[in-house]
Every structure is written in C-alpha cells, then in structure tokens.
C-alpha cells in the first residue's frame, strides 16, 4: 500500500472517529501502556542520562542549542500560520527565522526574541484543531510519545510541508538548501535532549507524585494540545462552577 492510500485511510478514520470519540478515549490502551513502559525504560537508560550530561554543559552552549532547534521548528510554523489564515503570525515567524538565521548566526542566537518576536510553534495537528477537527482517540507511539489520531495524521503531513523535513528527511532541494536523514535525526534528537534537560525537575516531580503516571502524562498532553490549539491558557470555568452548585 502506498503512502497516499495510508494517509487517506488514516484521514477517514480520524474524520469518522472524531464524531464519536473524545480525546480522552483510548485507541488501544493495553498496547499504549506497554509502549509507555518501553518509553519510560528508554528515558531511564538513554534520554535522561544524556539530558543530565547536557545540563552540565556551559549555559551559552545549552542556550545556543535551544535557540538553534527552536529556530528550525519555526519553519514549520510558517505554512501552518498561513493555513490558519493568520498572516501576521506567518509574517512574524518568517521575520524571526530570517533575523535569527542571519544576525543570530544560523539561529544559535535569538535576536528576534530580544526584539519581541516570540513565535508560537504551530503544526498541522494544531491547524486541523483550529479548523474544528476533533482529537480522535489517544495512543502512545514508541520513542515519539503521546499523540492522538488527529495529531498523528498531522505529524505525517508535517513532513510534507515543513521546509526542514523536505530538505533533510525527504532529501529534496528546498530553495537551494539540502541535507539528509542524519541531519534531520540529529536536530530532532537535540530538540528532545534540550526539552528533557529543561524539564528534569518537572518530570522527576511528576513521576514521584503520580498514582498513575500514564494517565497523568495523557492528561498533560491533551491539555497542552488544547491550549496550543486555542492559543490560550484559560481554564474551563464551568468545570469548577459545577462543584459549587
């Protein structure tokens, strides 16, 4: 089966399921829990020790790595802002990428941020959410972690519209830039290590204080996606209001 057919089947699945499933519904909980355990093992043996070592590096190196990966991620935000009809967002993201890639020395510096251009990251999953496509059911992927049917479809589509993925993973020339799969994996790995290093205390604290870590992670993932789609940190007032009735 070719990729187009696979995408079409997944899309159909998402569109049918989103009408009947809420994001809190599991696609296949047993399997997801097993994958989650595998991911926790991977974190314990590889990611966490690497992130701990990374945290010992001098601050300018860590900042530079964070800025570099964040600048590359901005590339994916540009087409998504356009698809969401947010032209100002697309303009800000483009300006941020250009400023950081030039004055910020290939993105290792963040002069755009100092100028007030702090760009929110957007992906196809968020764009679909902005169009009202529901999350579909929830599951966990090996290494990549938690996702939903909509976000998984979004992730596949990201690789077709993200200039960085096109130039590296797909190894196609993009406006004169080209790379290979190793470049792609190196940047994604650096992003993961930087994120894990930044959240060392948060992860440890969550792990220590959870009765069921799998469910806590699921809740945090779904809340985070909801917040990013709505571009807001507002919480549901009705939820609490019900308690006082």
């Amino acid at each position: 089966m070719d990729l187009k057919k696979t995408v079409l089947i997944i899309l159909t699945f998402v569109l049918f399921q989103t009408n009947v499933l809420k994001a809190s519904n599991e696609c296949f909980e047993g399997i997801s829990r097993s994958i989650f355990d595998f991911n926790m093992g991977f974190d314990k043996v590889i990611l966490k020790p690497v992130a701990k070592a990374y945290n010992k590096l001098p601050e300018p190196i860590k900042d530079g790595t964070g800025n570099f990966t964040s600048n590359i991620a901005t590339l994916l935000s540009i087409p998504n802002f356009v698809l969401q009809g947010n032209l100002k967002g697309a303009g800000d993201a483009s300006a941020s990428f250009l400023i950081n890639s030039t004055f910020g020395v290939l993105g290792f510096g963040n002069p755009a941020g100092s100028m007030g251009l702090n760009v929110q990251k957007e992906d196809v999953g968020q764009t679909l959410g902005a169009y009202g496509v529901g999350a579909g059911c929830y599951f966990v992927m090996p290494i990549l972690g938690p996702t939903t049917a909509r976000d998984a479809l979004g992730m596949i589509t990201d690789s077709y519209i993200d200039p960085f993925s096109i130039a590296t993973w797909r190894e196609k020339d993009f406006l004169g830039a080209s790379g290979n799969k190793i470049d792609y994996l190196a940047v994604k790995s650096a992003t993961a290590v930087d994120f894990r290093g930044d959240n060392m205390t948060n992860f440890d604290s969550l792990e220590k204080n959870s009765l069921d870590l799998y469910s806590s992670m699921k809740s945090l993932y779904l809340q985070d996606r909801e917040r990013k789609i709505q571009n807001s940190s507002e919480t549901n007032e009705d939820d609490w209001g019900n308690l006082d009735k």
Binding site: S24, S210, L211, D212, Y214, S215, S216, K218, S219, L220, Q223, D224, R227, S232, S233, T235, D239, W240
Partner: peptide, 20 residues
C-alpha cells in the same frame, strides 16, 4: 488549583483518578 504553563494540576489529578 495551580495552573502550571497552562496545565491544571487539579484537572490532571482528576483525570488520573478517573483513569484508575
């Protein structure tokens, strides 16, 4: 409730208990 970076601790706890 405490809402850390937009993520509600009470809601997380509620969903954790609901899952159990």
């Amino acid at each position: 409730d405490l809402v850390v970076e937009g993520l509600s601790l009470a809601r997380t706890q509620k969903e954790e208990f609901a899952s159990i």
